[in-house]
Design a binder for these strands. Sequence first.
DNA 1: ACATTAAGTTAGGTTTACCTTACAATATAG
DNA 2: CTATATTGTAAGGTAAACCTAACTTAATGT
Lengths: 126, 126
Amino acid sequence: MISASLEDYLEFIHNTILEKKEIKAINISKAFNISRPSVSEALIRLADMDLIIYEGRKGIKITKKGIKQAQKTVKKHKILSDFFTEVLKIDREQAEKNACKIEHVIDDEIIEKMKKYKESKLKNNE
Amino acid sequence: MISASLEDYLEFIHNTILEKKEIKAINISKAFNISRPSVSEALIRLADMDLIIYEGRKGIKITKKGIKQAQKTVKKHKILSDFFTEVLKIDREQAEKNACKIEHVIDDEIIEKMKKYKESKLKNNE
DNA sequence: ACATTAAGTTAGGTTTACCTTACAATATAG
DNA sequence: CTATATTGTAAGGTAAACCTAACTTAATGT
């Protein structure tokens, strides 16, 4: 099992690679406001779990396994955030903030029900 | 700020006192499957925060501040659990399990919206 | 009353996730 | 092409939340 912190970093790595084609340790440091040594440590742990390939300055690559893992988190994040904004009418910023925390602890079944609930609500355009 | 673990223990202390009038460290140890030394440590930390008064075998008393804090958690727990079962049709067990984790990270505003959403849904008995 | 059991504490250890300070290596700017 | 700034690593430290083993103290059974 991956921790909430590592899951956050992996999610960020994945999103950043999709967006900008590459990512460096320093970007993670800045994005999460953690020290460079802490990032090094986290990247080593992610590499130990075969979620990324880390070769220092040569860059960070995400593995198949890492992509799968990150996609799961991203999916949860999106469903939570959409449910909060569209069903509960929470503002985007707060929805995002809460999705970031809840995505690490909520079960898949609840996520699926949230998704279905939102979809059927939209269909019946209530 | 109180940690998720301490919040869990305080919630359990509060609920148990309401139900059985008293609680001992050993009950927490059994309920959460953690060692007696870990409970001692946690109780000392809760006492340091003035959430309980702890005098070893003489018992555990919850302070005003502790009751307030615990009630907040209990409220969040109940709203989450009810929302999951009544709105999303999640089974009780899973709803409880997830409420236990989410209650520590979710903002009050979302909890309030969940409560209102559920109430208005019941009123219109959809 | 005394042995056993139960409950709690002490001491010392682990892992995770952070930190700072100091150093090494690489890029960039003049 | 060297000086400076950027990025990363090493070493060592902290706090939280757990653990085990060993001890103390209190309660209980016979």
